[in-house]
Nucleic acid binder design. Sequence first.
RNA 1: GGAGACGUGGCAGAGUGGUCGAAUGCGCCGCACUCGAAAUGCGGUAUACUCGAAAGGGUAUCAGAGGUUCGAAUCCUCUCGUCUCCGCCA
Length: 434
Amino acid sequence: MLDIKFIRDNAKKVKQAVEHKKASANIDHLLSLDEQRRKLLVRIEDLRAKRNELNMLLKQARTDELIEQSRALKDELGKFELEFIEIDRQWMAEMLKVPNIPWKDVPVGQDERENQTVFTWGAPRKFAFEPKDHMQLGHDLNLIDTESAAKVAGSRFGYLTGGLVQLQFALINYVFTLLLNETELKKLANSVEKGYPAKPFIPVIPPFMIKPEVYVKTSRLSEEDKDERYYLQKDDLYLIGSAEHTLVSKHMDEVLKASDLPLRYIGYSTSFRRESGSYGKDVKGILRVHQFDKLEMESFTAASDSFKEHLFLIAIEEHILQALDLPYRKLLKCTADIGMPNARGVDMEVWIPSQKTYRETHTADMMTDFQSRRLNIKLKSEKGENVLVHTNDATALAMPRVLIAILENYQQADGSVEVPEVLQKYTGFDVIKK
RNA sequence: GGAGACGUGGCAGAGUGGUCGAAUGCGCCGCACUCGAAAUGCGGUAUACUCGAAAGGGUAUCAGAGGUUCGAAUCCUCUCGUCUCCGCCA
């Protein structure tokens, strides 16, 4: 959520953001509601002040006249309060539709086709044979079983088995080892800015469920988002769509110490997505599933560091892809594609041989203070003032997709799949074969 | 799932209908004393919104939401959380 004062003072800028992001917020309507809301508030507070004065008098002498006045005041107050509740509800509904302001270098675009490729790493491998797609490999090597999953749970689920499961845990181990290693992180931090803090991440397994009111505060449960979430009615809980959702809210209503920052978490969780609007897309295989495991980075920093932190998280993503020797390209997402709460967003897309194209495996979101404002996460500044922290989140590894990328890119002529070198010490084997 | 106790400021902890945004202690900040420190003394020390050019006002907040009352930290209801015991369970 943006600061209403900022919206009042920068209506033009905010309107432009709404337009560029194709958001649904109506700023003129919001400002009109805001004015009504404040007028009512002043009125209500005046009446309350009067009531408090009367109460002072009543303390000293209980007279029928004073009680009568107080009663009348109460009725009047009640009417205004009712009105206020309604206006305030409308005001907040509109506030929640206002998107974050895009960072200055975010390209203006109509949709994902206008994302800019800013960097490409590695060359797509030339195969001396016809490469199989991940499902063929998964089937031939007994690694992926979507038929049983369909029988048991429906479409867009899969059983992962055998060496693929070991590969997943090797990947997790590899990433945890990297993100806890200050020496390795130092190199990446220095690539952002010499001396930028290389403080290691704290490993976390967060809750996979979240209360609706908290979810709203993360800016990840807008009216549009709701279709995408699984909701457990009996318990009034949502299943998380990413570890980010319960990592960022971990510090809700807290004041962090400057000395604790940057505060970095690497969270491991299963992510749940209904994929409600994606019928017909990627129906084959396990590229797009309802449930997948993911390692997610989440950082809390001072405002002055949030852009550097964003770049740092991106550097980590690239380091991981390079270590896995997967050809990828880096995209600076355009205004229409970065998402409502983002100021800036960068995606990594990995080469998928069977599709002869790059597919998204990573995303890095710079949120500025958009999440922390509603979550009420602050930082005690050097001057002793409480200011909002900035949050950043980014994928470290999203499971089925990176598994797919490895299967397809590392397949051999004999139908086996090599294990990327950095993972071999974690798997204990160097090839997956039948 | 059943039974019970509890939830007050950064922390501890008073407060059972108006004198309470809230005693006291600790912590923290400033000042004094000191060569410096400790100890001591004095003063200060929540957040949000809102009105105002400012000075300075006002309102709200005692887990959260409702209710009773002229008036609620205090009484009632519900929710959430913590703890204890029983049951079930990886």
